[in-house]
Amino acid sequence: MEPFYRTIIGVARTLFAAQGLKFTITGEDRIPKVGGAVIAINHTGYMDFTYAGIPARPSRRYIRFMAKKEVFDHKISGPMMRAMKHIPVDRGDAGDSYRLAVEALRAGELVGVFPEETISRSFELKNFRTGAARMALEAGVPVIPMIVWGSQRVWTKGHPKRLGRTNTPITIRVGEPIEPYGPAAEMTAELHATMEKMLHEVQDAYRHEPGTYWTPRRFGGTAPTLEEASALDEAAAAERRARKERERAERERGNEGGDGQGGGTGSGPSAQ
């Protein structure tokens, strides 16, 4: 047992109870009691990783989630994430995170991955990256699909968080393990098809409210379609790139100014 991770789980359970969250969980027995596995999870809300760890409790396992580097850079969340042995992901250079994930899998750990990389604004499955399949192939471990549904009602992209007592129902389903095989693109395609089928089954059994932002368009909600969501994601990515370019240009201008001042200082008495 890991005291700190166990304590965080206890705090989370208390928070979930205070919120009145109602979990329906199936397939927990598909989480292996020993050995490594990639846990592939759909992504609809910021709290997904906190819910995705619940099915591992009966097996007394901990999931090491791959999360963006910025979370680890934060002065509060960073030390906590490192203490729980989660894995930082630098989107500009994901090589180190991939290596760390494969090492963890080979050491018998469960590694949590979001193949869509970012939250799906449409709440339908986006295209998958091949990372989950490639890690499973390299480490020789299965990929276990998992669907979390309802978390978008608690906190999702573009909408206020609802962390009070909402009594929100959340469904979590664990699928059958997919043994690794190549090429990775084919395994990824099977994973996507499997998770899409699971997602539709979970959605069909869930009580949606037409006209709400958290309900997919095909159930009468106001969430964007997959195509509309893709356009929003592309626009946001373009804005991030433009912002980084502006920041880079500002740093370069600042460095040029600093170099000029340094030259002036070097010609003073202290340089004699």
Rank of each mutant, 00 (worst) to 15 (best):
M1G: 14
M1D: 09
F4P: 01
F4Q: 00
T7W: 15
I8S: 05
V11T: 09
V11A: 10
A12M: 11
A12P: 01
T14R: 03
L15T: 08
A17H: 14
I25E: 02
G35R: 14
I39F: 13
G45A: 11
M47K: 14
D48A: 10
D48I: 09
T50A: 15
A52L: 07
R60S: 08
Y62Q: 15
R64A: 00
R64V: 01
V71G: 00
H74L: 12
S77Q: 06
P79K: 01
P79I: 03
M80Y: 03
M80N: 08
R82G: 07
I87L: 03
I87K: 09
R91S: 12
R91F: 08
D93F: 00
A94R: 11
E103M: 14
E103C: 06
A104D: 03
L110W: 06
E124W: 02
L125N: 10
L125P: 07
F128Q: 03
R129A: 12
T130N: 13
A133N: 03
I147H: 11
V148H: 04
W149R: 02
W149S: 09
K161R: 12
R162G: 05
R162F: 03
R173G: 05
Y181S: 10
G182E: 07
M195I: 00
M198N: 01
H200I: 07
H200N: 13
V202N: 03
Q203M: 05
D204S: 11
D204W: 09
A205R: 10
H208E: 13
G211S: 06
Y213H: 07
T215Q: 05
P216F: 00
R218I: 07
T222N: 05
T222K: 02
P224K: 00
A231R: 12
A231T: 11
D233I: 04
D233Y: 00
A237M: 11
E239D: 13
E245C: 02
E250H: 15
E252D: 10
N255K: 15
G260L: 13
Q261V: 12
G263K: 15
G266F: 05
S267H: 13
Q272S: 06
